[in-house]
Amino acid sequence: MSGGKIAVGGGIGGVIMLVIYLLMGGDPGALQDQGGQQGQYNSSGTYEPTAEEQELYELVTVTLADTEEVWHEIFRERNATYQEPTLVVFTQAVQSACGSASAATGPFYCPLDRQVYIDLSFYNQLRQLRAPGDFAMAYVIAHEVGHHVQNLLGISDQVQAQRGRISQEEYNQLSVRLELQADFFAGLWAHHAQDKFNILQEGDIEEALGAANAIGDDRLQQQSQGYVVPESFTHGTSAQRVRWFRKGFESGRFEEGDTFNTPNL
């Protein structure tokens, strides 16, 4: 079995940019009815994005466009067709086919609607986790796109089918392998994007590795509760997440990312 994430994707052609929708005079009530963001409105009822939100939106859409180029090529090399996800950008709350989510959820992918949901405020959360930078955010986006790839390959369904058939601890281990493969796919994207577009600047990979390290289960549990419970891990340790991103980036080989048949993660 190869890997994926059971959570929540989008192509540039299908971008749902809530901030821009409202800026162009869209009806805020229509978005609220759909579970979209609720932001700051002026007297005309249009949303006024901050300069940082506009900058982050550009970062998100450019990164997504790069992932599409890379994954189209990787799929073509394997005589397959890559189907682009849809991007949903939000800042406060959003409704997906996988349920409603607040900004506290952070970025996620929903396999039921094949949409990548990116919370712009997560950029600031990365700063708070001492993992700042544009490429740290790009890594997060590429990770969620990695879950979309896993969904297209049927990996997510294979893992989901095990729910209820095995113990919760065993299912958590499968979840860890799903997440680590998504980290590998993020690294794989960075490798090929550098080859195709020369996107990397000095310190970019360090930013991505910093983000991977910051959101490991062990580190987050230690920070939140003062101790770690390995049996409850669902995303992998900081060291594992760094290792698999680095492996994808350094190898550039899709075949190296089978976390499910790797004894020592």
Score class of each variant (00 low, 15 high):
170 E>V: 08
152 L>V: 05
184 F>P: 05
155 I>C: 12
186 A>H: 01
226 G>H: 12
213 N>W: 15
219 R>M: 11
211 A>Y: 03
130 R>L: 04
157 D>W: 10
148 H>G: 05
241 R>H: 07
177 R>T: 06
154 G>V: 03
213 N>Y: 15
145 V>S: 08
151 N>D: 14
194 Q>P: 09
211 A>S: 10
209 L>Q: 10
122 F>I: 06
126 L>I: 07
216 G>N: 12
195 D>I: 08
203 G>I: 01
233 F>C: 07
179 E>H: 14
194 Q>I: 09
208 A>Q: 00
224 S>L: 11
179 E>I: 09
194 Q>T: 14
166 I>M: 03
143 H>A: 00
237 T>M: 06
216 G>W: 07
185 F>G: 13
142 A>H: 06
223 Q>W: 12
232 S>C: 05
237 T>I: 14
126 L>D: 09
222 Q>R: 07
162 Q>F: 13
123 Y>E: 11
170 E>P: 04
146 G>L: 01
145 V>I: 12
148 H>P: 02
135 F>K: 02
162 Q>N: 12
131 A>E: 06
219 R>G: 09
127 R>S: 04
198 N>L: 15
229 V>T: 08
203 G>Y: 01
200 L>I: 05
210 G>K: 10
245 F>N: 00
155 I>H: 08
202 E>Q: 09
167 S>T: 10
187 G>R: 02
212 A>S: 15
178 L>G: 12
138 A>V: 12
128 Q>V: 08
125 Q>L: 04
123 Y>G: 13
143 H>S: 02
184 F>D: 03
229 V>I: 12
224 S>D: 06
